[in-house]
């Protein structure tokens, strides 16, 4: 099972999932097509309720697509029940077995596959060390903090060396420092094991820093797929631009441009000058943020935008300024 085969990754073809509900059918995933490469760190990013968990569940075999097909290494996995898919999940709710110790939880998958005991013991020990819970093996899940439970869930899935690891908001319960450490750890694991990671998050920083590619989802649809840089620099829609990082949107005319659509730009891409620039405005607020300083500027048309500068500028509230934005940093969205 762990043998590396010639693989062509995971292909999701026009997959939809509809749930019945009292107010009529809910289309949780709407005609999604994706190809995920072997050994890719692929992230599904989107707001709550956009269908991320549902898509993961269909890959794991826990939900059956209403239509469409899912191919793993050129094989249609639709007929395979969850327990026969070389896929493991780190559940959003952890779903640890409350009647088993941490060690037994982690060993569960290998036991079910009938692996020899010595191999299981060794793998479990390594997995515990990996998630820094070496001394907690004999505890019951209820005796662990939320973050520790989440790490057990991670170890329990990883220890099986699946072809695909599905992670549903798997770092969300960790504190900032541990989270950063686990991000680096996950990235390293993914590179070393050759496992494909499909990672669900609604934290855009996490998505940008960890992913090879990101699919931004909106209401059951994929709004854009691309590398973090593509998505950040060239968001396909206004929704994507807004969801990834902060983006100012103003009328083209406010920037002195001859266009009738809205133009977007990132706070860090624009700067201001007291001399000539693209649009005029007044500084309304100066917000010192440590590494950067935010300037809230009201344009002459009444629109309010945010700029960020690395070094504090020599200006004061109510000073009149003009914007300077390199033309290639302007974002023109189709929708």
């Amino acid at each position: 099972m762990i043998l590396k085969t010639m693989s062509s990754g995971l292909v999701i073809q026009t997959v939809s999932k509809t749930f019945p509900s009292p107010t009529g059918p809910v289309r949780a995933v709407d005609n999604v097509s994706l190809t995920i490469q072997p050994n890719e760190f692929f992230t599904l990013l989107g707001p709550s309720g956009c269908g991320k968990t549902t898509l993961l569940r269909m890959i794991a075999g826990l939900d059956i697509p209403t239509s469409g097909s899912i191919l793993l290494d050129n094989q249609d996995i639709a007929p395979l029940p969850a327990y026969q898919r070389p896929v493991n999940t780190v559940f959003q709710s952890y779903a640890l077995f409350p009647h088993m110790t941490v060690t037994d939880n982690i060993a569960f998958g290998m036991k079910m596959q009938g692996k020899p005991k010595t191999e299981i013991d060794k793998a479990v020990k390594e997995a515990l060390a990996l998630v820094r819970l070496d001394d907690k093996g004999e505890r019951m899940p209820a005796q662990l903090s939320g973050g520790q439970q989440q790490r057990v869930a991670l170890a329990r899935a990883l220890v099986n060396h699946p072809k695909i690891l599905l992670l549903d908001e798997s770092l969300s319960a960790l504190d900032y420092k541990l989270r950063k450490e686990m991000q680096i750890e996950l990235k390293r694991l993914q590179r070393e094991t050759g496992i494909t990671f499909i990672f669900v998050t609604h934290d855009q920083d996490e998505a940008l820093s960890m992913s090879d590619r990101i699919a931004v989802m909106e209401k059951g649809n994929v709004a854009q797929i691309g590398t973090p840089q593509e998505i950040y620099d060239r968001p396909a829609t206004r929704f994507v631009a807004d969801f990834i990082g902060i983006c100012n949107f103003v009328k083209a005319s406010s920037l002195g441009l001859n266009d009738n659509c809205d133009i977007g730009f990132r706070p860090e891409d624009a700067s201001f000058t007291v001399g000539r620039g693209m649009g005029k405005g007044n500084i309304r607020h100066i917000n010192y943020r440590g590494a950067v300083t935010h300037y809230i500027i009201e344009l002459e048309g009444g629109e309010t935008i945010t700029l960020s500068e690395d070094d504090p500028q020599n200006v004061e509230v109510n000073d009149a300024v003009s914007l300077v934005i390199p033309p290639e940093r302007l974002i023109r969205c189709t929708a």
């Binding site: 327990y83 779903a95 009647h99 569960f108």
Partner: peptide, 27 residues
């Protein structure tokens, strides 16, 4: 018992019978 427990068992290669033996019945 949350349904996710039985889903986790299935995800971890437990056949329905194994899942019953190891997870459902003890709980």
């Amino acid at each position: 018992l949350p349904p996710s427990l039985f889903e986790a068992a299935a995800d971890l290669y437990a056949t329905p019978w194994q899942s019953f033996r190891r997870v459902t019945l003890p709980l």
